[in-house]
Design a protein around this nucleic acid. Structure first.
Length: 378
RNA sequence: GGUGGGGUGGCCGAGUGGCUAAUGGCAGCAGACUGUAAAUCUGCCGAGCUUCGCUCUACGUAGGUUCGAAUCCUACCCCCACCA
């Protein structure tokens, strides 16, 4: 039920098929983020029509609202949200990072002060796993501690080693819960270690000695370090990762990061930028970023991106999309979110086709040249 | 006709002698955003320029007082309220 088959490769880039309880995911693949059980602003049908094969949910946010008991009582996250395809839940580890101002960390876990009502919420490896089990996504993530990208070595080491200790506990609890239901959910570990290659390697060694995982995530990137540093970690880690397991680069990325990540053997990506930037009127195109509410678009007949097959571009003009943003109509945010999601998914689909053609490297070179030629679309 | 109040940058609206090209807010423009505390945040926003600065033109209009005026004085124009 948790199967990964390599369909082909081109250099270090890979194409595969990941089989999960709720369906099949062809990789490389971009996974839209639906933190609170919805891809922000979008109808599940729109997410499906954008080509999404799998989406995320978040342990911390769904624990706060509506609470995992409610989700479980409503039949789990799939049924509750009516998303029929695979899902993955993040463990709340990212909130240890993003909500660092309102949490206290100790060896056993993390105390959060809810940003919603100020109540105290404690997350431990075991709790994060229990909540995810109740949410019922196909893939659960281990509870991890990621250090900011600029962290000194000692702090990064500390976070990486704690993540390994938490991993052992996450795995144990998940084994207990899934004992009678082995087909329900799988657990993936997260490689930490910041930009320090030896720490990354130590993290991976620890992970591989812990269990035979069905997939492995790389976390703690795109959190403040430079892009070359991020790509260097992927270069370093790639050959050491089990070839027959999917690799998930967490929280990444921008279009160029997908191309660079795929080139380095990454199979799965997720990122909030598609929807957040979409809400902020920033659209991705093959020629770079476009300000969808830019003053120059008032009379532009063409689509946000020429040739795009998304629900925004096949129907609406740039002039209309700009108008929606200026008038603060929600449809504008929704349309560009759809476009951006479709853009990344199409990018991954194209990459997959080129990998299967054994033509990925040349395609990636052309893609980079075009994407960065203008910088911003004027 | 009388009395009182008021006319400030695209709009609203502070400011009552120098620290004022003029607080705020809105509108406008640009940029940022990477496992979502984000429909958020930052910058610009009189004109022009060689834009960490310089030069013009500005607070209804025209004069005046003063070293110096959006701020004081005079006249005029316009708006509002009340009384005739």
């Amino acid at each position: 039920m948790f199967d990964f088959v390599l369909d082909g490769s081109s250099g270090t880039a890979r194409a595969g098929t990941l089989t999960l309880p709720h369906g099949v995911v062809e990789t490389p693949c971009f996974m839209p983020v639906g933190t609170r059980g919805a891809v922000r602003g979008l109808h599940p049908a729109e997410v499906e029509r954008a080509g999404a094969q799998i989406i995320l949910g978040n342990t911390y946010h769904l624990h706060l609202r509506p609470g995992e008991a409610t989700v479980a009582a409503m039949g789990g996250l799939h049924r509750f949200s009516t998303w029929p395809r695979p899902m993955l839940t993040d463990s709340g580890g990212f909130q240890v990072f993003s909500l660092s101002a309102m949490r206290k960390l100790d060896e056993d876990g993390v105390d959060f002060v809810s940003h919603i009502d100020g109540s105290r919420r404690r997350l431990t490896a075991e709790r994060a796993i229990e909540i995810q089990w109740q949410l019922g996504a196909d893939i659960a993530m281990a509870f991890d501690h990621l250090a900011p990208g600029q962290s000194p070595r000692d702090q990064t080491t500390d976070a990486m080693q704690r993540t390994l200790r938490w991993l052992a506990r996450s795995r144990r609890r998940h084994d207990e819960l899934s004992a009678g239901h082995p087909e329900r959910q799988t657990l993936w570990p997260i490689v930490q270690g910041g930009v320090y290659h030896d720490l990354r390697r130590a993290s991976l060694d620890g992970i591989l000695s812990e269990a035979d995982w069905t997939g492995i995530a790389i976390g703690g990137l795109s959190v403040g370090e430079s892009k070359p540093a991020m790509y260097a970690v992927l270069d370093e880690l790639g050959p050491a990762l089990p070839a027959d397991r999917p690799r998930y680069l967490m929280g990444v990325g921008f279009p160029e990061d997908l191309v660079e990540g795929i080139a380095r053997g990454v199979d799965l990506f997720d990122c909030v930028a598609a929807t957040r930037n979409g809400r902020h009127a920033s659209a991705w195109t093959a020629d770079g970023k476009l300000n969808a509410r830019g003053a120059g678009r008032q009379l532009e007949e063409g689509p946000v991106e020429d040739g795009c097959d998304c629900e925004c571009c096949t129907r609406f003009s740039r002039a209309y999309v700009r108008h929606l943003f200026v008038a603060e109509e929600q449809l504008g945010q929704r349309l560009v979110s759809i476009h951006n999601i479709r853009f990344l998914i199409r990018l991954a689909e194209t990459a997959r086709a080129r990998i299967l053609d054994h033509n990925f490297t040349a395609w990636a070179a052309e893609w980079r040249a075009r994407y960065f030629a203008k910088g911003l679309v004027r």
